[in-house]
């Protein structure tokens, strides 16, 4: 057993019913588990939703979380993605306004460097769209906060993850 807390990934299949999200979210808050992000959406089967959950915890707590999820009547399947080869991406929007011309140019340049899209703009505002891993998005956000904090808003979606087909290790 490892007592150190580290980041974990769970992919959860649940019934696509009213209240299931509240049930799962409530489980985390009620038992004081450290939830980092949770995303949910319908799957190829509209009666099933799939959640991607990232959390911090040690081995013992994480085992307990998986068991608690498993015993919930609404949960169909719990997959532990922590040490599996997976693809995971998060969407991050950053809107920056009141930009001068040189700032605008700098943003277009830096966006190209980071490989992120400018999905909308007018003469003094831009919206950046970054689809990356959570930690890469952390870096992107850090960069723009450094220069534009008072003129920006950021929205993050939380990660979605899927098991890879070709990679044998991460």
């Amino acid at each position: 057993m490892d007592n150190t807390s580290r980041k974990r990934w769970i992919s959860l299949y649940v019934e696509n019913d009213v209240g299931v999200l509240a049930k799962i979210a409530g489980l985390f808050s009620g038992k004081s588990y450290n939830l980092k992000s949770l995303t949910v959406g319908e799957t190829e089967d509209p009666t099933v939703s799939r959640m991607t959950i990232s959390l911090m915890g040690d081995d013992k707590t994480f085992e307990q979380i998986k068991k608690q999820l498993n015993r919930s009547v609404e949960v169909i399947k719990v997959l532990d993605f922590t040490d599996l080869p997976i693809h995971k991406k998060e969407i991050l929007f950053i809107k920056i306004h009141s930009l001068k011309k040189d700032e605008m140019e700098e943003i277009f340049r830096s966006a190209a460097v980071f490989g992120i899209n400018i999905c909308d703009c007018d003469r003094a505002s831009v919206i950046l769209e970054s689809v990356k891993t959570e930690s890469e998005n952390d870096d992107v956000l850090k960069y723009y906060k450094k220069y534009y904090l008072s003129r920006m808003e950021a929205v993050r979606g939380g990660s979605v993850a899927v098991e890879s087909v070709s990679k044998s290790e991460r």
Binding site: V18, G19, A22, G26, L27, V73, E74
Partner: peptide, 13 residues
């Protein structure tokens, strides 16, 4: 259902 969610085995409307 919301009130009982964490204190019962299952709750449904």
């Amino acid at each position: 259902v919301g009130i009982c969610r964490s204190i019962c085995k299952y709750a449904v409307t």
